[in-house]
Design a protein around this nucleic acid. Structure first.
Lengths: 230, 230
DNA sequence: GTTCCAATTGGAG
DNA sequence: GCTCCAATTGGAA
C-alpha cells in the first residue's frame, strides 16, 4: 500500500524523452522471432525481449521485475518454457498458424472457441499467442496514454501476431477489426491489473517471511540471554 | 491558461458528497419535459435543467456558465430558441418520433442519414435530439470517471431519449447497442472539448475588450491632463 | 477470477 | 472542425 512500494510499477517518466532508448534497442537485437510453442492451456510465449522498438529504462525495469517475480508461481499450470522443445512431435504438430501465419495456436483451442462471441474469442487467442505476462506488460500501440502522459508507456505487442489475431477474429466472428483491437486493449489492461495483484501478493509474502525470520532471531537471542543468566 | 481561469471547468470535488444536492434539485423542478423543436440543423433542445437526478453545486455552475456564455455566439446557425414555437405548423409537423417515441427528430434528417455508418448516424441523432451544449455537459451515466475520481461527474443524459437513439441506430444500422453507447460517450467527450474551446475564445475576447476599454480610459486621462496644463 | 463498462484525455486522421 | 483512436482507471456484472 505504501507509495514507495509501487514506485516501480506506477512509473512516472523522469526524463521527457529518454535518449538512451536507441542504445538499448541496439543492445537487444532480434534474438528469436517469436517462436510459439505448443503448450496445453496458457502457452507462454517468451515474455518480451524481442519486439520493443522503443522503450525507456523504466519500462525495462518493469518487465524485468515482472519476469523475475512472477515466473515461478503456478501462474502457468504444467508449462515448462524450456522443456517445451522436448515435447513429443505429435503434440507440436497440433499447433496451427492463423492469419498470415505468424501466430500459432493449438489446434484444439481453435475448435473450442465460440466464434459468435468475438470478445471471448479474441481473449482466448491473445492468451494463447502471447501469454499473460506479455499481455500485462504490453499494449496495442506502445504509446503513452493521452490521459496519463506521465506514466511510462508499455511496450508494443508484436504487430504481426496482433494482425493475425485481428484478422482471424474479424473473419470468423464476422465483425470489423476495430472492436477486436479495442478488446485487445482491454485485455492488456486487465492482465496488467492481474500482474500487479500477483506482485502485491508476492511482496506481501516476502514481507511476511522476513517478519517470521526476524521473530525467530529474536527468540533465539532471548534464549541465549536466558542461558547466560543461569 | 492560468489555473484559476479553468477552475470552474476543470472541476474538482470539494466535498465527497454534496449534501445540498437535494435542495438544488428541488429548486429546479421539471419545467419542460424535453420538448424537441424542429429547427434545421442543430436543433437546440433546451440545455439542461430537467433531467438531473443528482448533481452537486459545481456541476450546476458549469452548466450555468455554459448556458450564459455560449448561448449568444453563432454556435447555432439560424436557430432562435424562443422563436421556434412561432415556426409554421408545417415545419413542426415534419418532426417524427424515433424508438419508443420520446425522442423527436426532423423527418428530413432521418432521410439524410446513412444507416451503413452507425457512428455517424448516432452522432447526427444526438446532435439533433440534445443539441451541442447538452451533449457537452452531460454523459451516458452521470458517473465519475474511474480514472479521474476527483473530477466532477457530468450530468446524465435523459435515459429515455438515449434509448430511443440507441434502439433506432442498432436496428437500422444492424449493430448491437453497445457500440452505439460507446459512440455516445465519445460524442459527449468531443462536445465537451468543443465547449471548452468556445469558452476559451469568449474569455479571451472579454479580456481583449477590457484591455481596449482600459486603453481608451488611459488616453482620455492623458488628454485631460494635457488640457489642464494648457 | 475474468470480463466488461464508460469516463477522460491528447492527438491522429 | 469534426470524428475516431486507444491508454488508463475502478467498479459493476
Amino acid at each position: 500500500m505504501s507509495p514507495e512500494f509501487w514506485g516501480f510499477l506506477a512509473l512516472r517518466r523522469r526524463e521527457p524523452q529518454d535518449g538512451s532508448s536507441k542504445a538499448v534497442t541496439a543492445a537487444v537485437p532480434d534474438i528469436s522471432p517469436q517462436l510459439t510453442v505448443a503448450v496445453p492451456e496458457i502457452s507462454p510465449q517468451l515474455p518480451s525481449g524481442t519486439n520493443h522498438p522503443s522503450f525507456s529504462r523504466d519500462a525495462v525495469e518493469l518487465e524485468q521485475a515482472a519476469d523475475a517475480d512472477v515466473s515461478t508461481p503456478k501462474d502457468t499450470c504444467t508449462n515448462p518454457t524450456a522443456e517445451a522443445k522436448l515435447v513429443s512431435p505429435e503434440t507440436i504438430a497440433k499447433v496451427v498458424p492463423i492469419g498470415d501465419g505468424n501466430a500459432l495456436v493449438p489446434a484444439y483451442l481453435l475448435k473450442t472457441i465460440n466464434w459468435n462471441v468475438h470478445k471471448i474469442a479474441t481473449r482466448k487467442l491473445l492468451q494463447s499467442v502471447f501469454g499473460r505476462r506479455v499481455l500485462a506488460t504490453h499494449n496495442l500501440t506502445g504509446k503513452v496514454s493521452p490521459a496519463f502522459p506521465d506514466k511510462m508507456p508499455k511496450a508494443k505487442l508484436d504487430e504481426a501476431l496482433v494482425n493475425d489475431i485481428v484478422q482471424t477474429v474479424a473473419e470468423r466472428c464476422n465483425v470489423t477489426e476495430n472492436p477486436v483491437r479495442t478488446c485487445i486493449t482491454i485485455k492488456c489492461a486487465d492482465e496488467g491489473k492481474w500482474l500487479r495483484k500477483q506482485l502485491t501478493k508476492l511482496k506481501a509474502k516476502k514481507k511476511e517471511d522476513l517478519e517470521k525470520k526476524r521473530k525467530a532471531e529474536e527468540k533465539k537471542l532471548k534464549m541465549n540471554s536466558l542461558n547466560l543468566k543461569t
